[in-house]
Write a protein that binds this DNA or RNA. Structure first.
Lengths: 179, 179
DNA sequence: CGTAGCATGTAAGTTGTTACATGATTCG
DNA sequence: CGAATCATGTAACAACTTACATGCTACG
């Protein structure tokens, strides 16, 4: 039984909200943690198999009514324990790669308009994110779940908002400087 | 001749500052773009070989005075063109994974102290980054290079500062809320 | 009748990290 | 004399993306 990776632990976390299929996990993760954590089907399905083999999740197959069979997974006691142990450990520091910044960094090799474009595009993206976050907030409030659970969801959302706003401020500053 | 990846283009970019060895590239990238772009030797050396085979960089070997041979690479005209074409293209949107946020997101499954710890650790990290950025700024000012080049370097540095400050603000807000 | 949604999965390819291997010189 | 710095490289592994394959149902 090899050590689990972050992806697998993230799936355990999502399953803590209730039994779900691989498909459901993708849908849920896309809107709930999609702005700081992405999973693809190419990862989800193999991971679920692996987690089941390790006894961390249990599968229940529903014969499809005409359509394809649906495999619903729920967290086992062992799975929950593994998850909680992971949650208690400090997160590793990671340096995300930023292609846009790299292009600004080397921007003196091309005409200034290109740098302006990169920054303007970033600004539009951050703006779009802020709009999306407002929608997510409404969705969270509508969702069922304990107040404490919602509080944690909203905390991560606030993080996204802080970052997006900082990006916008930076973009505006830089665009002014470049003019 | 397959398409180059971002890592290889980043190396071309760094070589635009002058001829360098693989070792030099690592040192330079660590302090200059290290806060948003990392390269490891395991990537650098194979990439340089590949770039040379493609005629984008040229190698000059200096017989080592006792020590190991040193391979210095410089950007060719073709390499510079490739780099400039890449700089003109818009950057792809990327969603960096954030383990710390994931742990806050699922934080209702463990005691509140753990969430506090994650956030406190983040705060300390962002603080440390801000200190490091001040040192980088001094280093940039001391470095030789055109004013325009320095301007671009400082722009990316400002980005780092904006983000680190936003992170600190978020941490402080959240710590207050959790008390 | 075409498209979107439900639903699961695999294979190939890409990209990246880490540990290992080697070895001289310089500084404290 | 040991550690740090200069210096290059490979091998094993880990992780992730994308395209492909399949096929039903509901809706417009």
């Amino acid at each position: 039984m090899k050590r689990l990776n972050q992806s697998q632990l993230a799936l355990l976390g999502l399953l803590s909200f209730g039994a779900m299929s691989g498909y459901d996990l993708k849908q849920l993760s896309d809107w709930s943690v999609g702005y700081f954590w992405r999973e693809s089907y190419g990862q989800i399905y193999p991971h679920l198999k692996r987690l089941e083999a390790d006894g961390l999740v249990a599968r229940k197959t529903e014969r499809g009514t005409g359509r394809r069979d649906r495999h619903e997974y729920r967290l086992t006691a062992a799975g929950k324990q593994t998850l909680q142990r992971w949650l208690a450990k400090p997160a590793a520091e990671e340096i995300p790669r930023n292609e846009m910044l790299l292009k600004v960094f080397f921007g003196d090799l091309v005409a200034p308009e290109f740098t302006v474009e990169h920054i303007a595009r970033q600004k539009a993206q951050s703006e779009a994110e802020l709009t999306a976050y407002a929608a997510v907030q409404k969705r969270i409030e509508g969702e069922q779940g304990s107040p404490r659970q919602k509080q944690h969801w909203l905390m991560t959302l606030r993080y996204g908002i802080h970052i997006a706003q900082a990006q916008m401020n930076w973009c505006e500053e830089m665009l002014k400087e470049l003019k």
